[in-house]
């Protein structure tokens, strides 16, 4: 379950970002992952409360977007989506393809509640 380590890393990053932005709490964390990153969204969601407990992101909403696997064929130039275990060209059947997207593991953005501004939460 490396998702716990990954959540801990996310908490470290958002804690630092909050500090830089003079934020009181983190309200939302947007993440993008591709299936080929090896990170499971469900496991990430399960690990998040454990990793965030007591942190500035304790009550944050974790929003995970899964990106599709897209490949480019190095033989015929076709672009298509693909299954995680079959990264082959749908036009010519070649396996010589390059990944365009699908292995992302990205902290995209965070939403912060700042100290100076009174907000209605």
């Amino acid at each position: 379950m490396h998702e716990l380590s990954i959540c801990q890393s996310i908490i470290e990053q958002v804690t630092e970002i909050s500090r830089q932005n003079n934020a009181r709490i983190v309200t939302k964390i947007y993440i993008q992952i591709g299936p080929l990153s090896g990170v499971e969204a469900l496991l990430l969601e399960h690990a998040f409360p454990v990793a965030s407990a007591g942190s500035i992101a304790q009550n944050a909403i974790l929003e995970i977007q899964i990106l599709p696997i897209k490949i480019h064929c190095n033989i015929c130039g076709n672009e298509n989506t693909a299954d995680i275990s079959k990264l082959i060209c749908s036009a010519c059947g070649a396996w010589q393809t390059s990944l365009i997207s699908g292995d992302e593991m990205l902290l995209k953005s965070v939403e912060l509640e700042k100290f100076e501004e009174k907000s209605n939460v």
Partner: peptide, 29 residues
């Protein structure tokens, strides 16, 4: 390629409808 458009369009900081601050990060997890 999957997220390049997000980076090129969105500003780094923006306000959300709740008045919170949205900060673009784009770092590996």
């Amino acid at each position: 390629e999957g997220n390049r458009n997000l980076i090129e369009t969105g500003g780094k900081h923006a306000k959300t409808s709740e008045g919170n601050e949205a900060v673009e990060v784009l770092q590996n997890l």
